[in-house]
Design a protein around this nucleic acid. Structure first.
Lengths: 223, 223
DNA sequence: TAGATTGTTAATCGATTAACAATC
DNA sequence: TAGATTGTTAATCGATTAACAATC
């Protein structure tokens, strides 16, 4: 799992944490408030992205990116380099399972397009939802997940179903050829070793926040 | 920022990462599939929670928790210890701003109750939404955020509004006395130093997943 | 006692930061 | 040249893991 340099192509082997931040840099670079051309210094961009400038430079150095000493980074060029590194030009098709409120929020989320992601198929188990449309897409029966995903060459799946269903939904996605799963259900899901799994627990972040808040109000720490 | 032991009370000074996992242990301990009484070993619980057993024992050691060597941990007793450490018995009131799909998903999220969190007030800016009800709660005008939050002693806020509004909504929450903010909008938000801020970027997790997926399918690493 | 499992130490790993030589 | 800013090194920090003595 340590740095394997492959074929001399720079920017292949990015630390996990760097990948997560690069998206933030790209967002800052392309935000309405940022000039589209010209140069930007690491300290300015770092402030826009909310990180330390040394960390930003370190992250960019993984891309083999080269700014100009004494000057800064070319805005358009840097944006292109990050896009290339993240593969945002490839528009990976994504299957979204569970068309409740969270699923709809994700389906309509505007930010996907520019980030190399395209919601390509929607699935649900409820007869009232199957056959309806959300935006441009029709909601399919989860029972059809295998043919639909195969047909659209979908390899990424998002599980936004109610608690208790995540494992079977994930199993179905894996049978359909999905190799990466993002699970929003607050359950442990098991996948074969060749399948990548990430989890987002919406309540957890809030719980962590509440923990610190409670600690403060009970006077545990000064300041 | 290094371990300050305060007043001899065990479990006060938990590493950030430990706090996040404790919630997962509690969930596993209280899941339907787990016995409610008896003992459980660190390796069994670790598997249920999806973590390494040594890490689990280390996390629990921060609580001053004491299992029984050669036996394991008392299930009910451990659950209580974790609840106490996380403060889940305190039911912190939370204000939720932005009653779109994401906001509704959060408002109805069943998992909050048992986790020390209570959505106590809803706010939106849209006249069509203000005055409607979601579950037991009426949606208030965001303009009323100060009196409503003060009245209900709310110190935690969740921002689930469309892009471009997060900063002003956060400012309003801070004016209303909120000291911890969870921001779901994919923007950098600035808060006074005494206010705690966390961010969740829903698209980011998917983008990270897609990055690894793309890497694999382009043959960058052997599998 | 023998077997099992904790609690803790020490080693490892990865991520962040400060500092500064290189260089535009 | 003088000033500015990168790219990189070394120091630091925190989190994870393996190993094992303690002990039930």
């Amino acid at each position: 799992m340590t740095g394997q340099e492959i074929g001399g192509t720079a920017g292949r082997d990015l630390p996990e944490a760097t990948v997560g931040r690069l998206a933030g840099y790209l967002r800052a670079l392309t935000a309405p408030g940022t000039a589209a051309s010209g140069v930007i210094s690491s300290s300015t961009l770092a402030e826009l992205a909310g990180v330390n400038a040394a960390l930003l430079r370190k992250d960019l150095s993984f891309l083999g990116s080269h700014g100009t000493r004494g000057v800064g980074y070319d805005i358009a060029g840097l944006a292109d380099e990050i896009r290339r590194a993240l593969g945002t030009h490839l528009a990976s098709p994504v299957a979204l399972v569970g068309i409740g409120h969270l699923g709809r929020a994700l389906a309509r989320y505007a930010g996907f397009g520019g980030r190399g992601l395209e919601i390509a198929a929607l699935f649900d188990a409820s007869p009232e939802v199957i056959g309806t449309r959300v935006g441009d897409l029709e909601v399919h029966d989860i029972a059809d997940v295998v043919p639909v995903c195969r047909d659209r060459a979908i390899t990424i799946g998002v599980v936004a179903t109610p608690e208790g269903t995540a494992q079977q939904v994930t199993d179905a996605l894996v049978r359909a050829g999905v190799r990466s799963v993002l699970n929003f259900a607050p359950e442990v899901v098991v996948v074969p070793p060749e399948v990548q799994l990430r989890r987002v627990d919406l309540a957890l972040e809030l719980q962590i926040l509440a923990f610190h808040e409670t600690r403060r109000s009970s006077g545990a720490v000064g300041g």
